[in-house]
Simulated assay, not measured.
Amino acid sequence: MPEGKIIKALSGFYYVLDGKDTIQCRGRGVFRKNKVTPLVGDYVVYQAENPTDGYVLEINDRKNELVRPPIANVDQAVLVFSAVEPDFSTALLDRFLVLIEDKEIDPVICISKMDLVPDEKQAELEEYVRDYTAIGYPVLVTSSVTSDGIEKLKPYLQDKISVFAGQSGVGKSSLLNAINPDLELKTNDISSHLGRGKHTTRHVELIHIGTGLVADTPGFSSLEFMDIEAERLSYCFPDIYETGENCKFRGCLHDKEPKCAVKEAVEAGEIRPYRYKHYMQFLEEIKERKPRY
């Protein structure tokens, strides 16, 4: 039976890429029975008598999956955060990083709209770039208006399935248009009334960018840590996890435990205070989470 990859899901149809051909398919009823939904990014077995009348028969094992946005088998996440409009937020960035790290997806931090940064904010943003680079994250500063940083971003997208993620209004679609103007993805400015971006992407679709596939998504509609346990949270903060290996007690949560290497590193300036602050906020959020039955 032929196999392919789902590159778009829309109105009950799954568009399966097999070589250079795209076949429009429906899902078999067995998926509904087993409460399994085919996702964009899935490798599937299908049958089709013609390009517009196929059926997805099987879904191969996934290496990872995201729920909101619904996509599977992602290699990396390009986390797009605008320098301004909306303002750059380390708290929100760290929340995205935790969600991505938990799924063992490689993150790339992309700061957009650098052409709009006022002089008084330049030094602050440059410091954040140094901080996250020191942790080990790739950090790119870009502008879809001036094309600064666009050429540096392109190599990251080759031969991989990438998801562009970030709050609405940060310029994800504008960046993709700057990378490939032929895409002509719809964009919208920030809503002056709400102070945030208006959603322009309505469904998940994988788009060819060079030798890679990029998902332009409606964005993360849930940023809660529903599946992350307190003991795992430090794994999602590489700087804290590495330092935590030197804690006196195994299983240290870097909270109230004595002789905690992480707290000592924060006091010594080796871990940025805002990173530890966010870690503690997230830890408290996880501890207060209602159990699911």
Results as ranks from 00 to 15, higher is better:
5 K>G: 02
9 A>M: 00
15 Y>L: 12
21 D>C: 06
30 V>Q: 13
33 K>C: 01
40 V>A: 07
41 G>I: 06
50 N>H: 11
59 I>E: 04
61 D>F: 10
64 N>D: 11
73 N>E: 06
73 N>R: 11
76 Q>E: 09
86 P>A: 11
87 D>Y: 12
87 D>K: 14
89 S>M: 07
91 A>D: 14
92 L>W: 11
95 R>E: 03
105 I>K: 09
109 I>H: 08
111 I>H: 03
113 K>Y: 04
117 V>S: 10
120 E>I: 06
125 L>E: 10
130 R>D: 14
131 D>M: 15
133 T>V: 03
135 I>P: 06
136 G>I: 06
147 S>P: 00
149 G>W: 02
157 L>P: 09
164 F>H: 07
166 G>R: 03
170 V>F: 02
179 I>Y: 04
191 S>F: 02
201 T>G: 09
201 T>H: 05
202 R>L: 13
214 V>Q: 05
216 D>M: 05
221 S>E: 11
225 F>S: 06
225 F>G: 05
230 A>N: 02
231 E>P: 00
233 L>N: 07
237 F>Q: 07
240 I>L: 08
243 T>H: 10
249 F>G: 09
256 K>P: 00
257 E>A: 08
260 C>P: 04
261 A>Y: 00
266 V>D: 02
271 I>Y: 07
276 Y>V: 05
277 K>I: 02
278 H>D: 15
287 K>Q: 15
289 R>T: 04
290 K>V: 12
290 K>T: 12
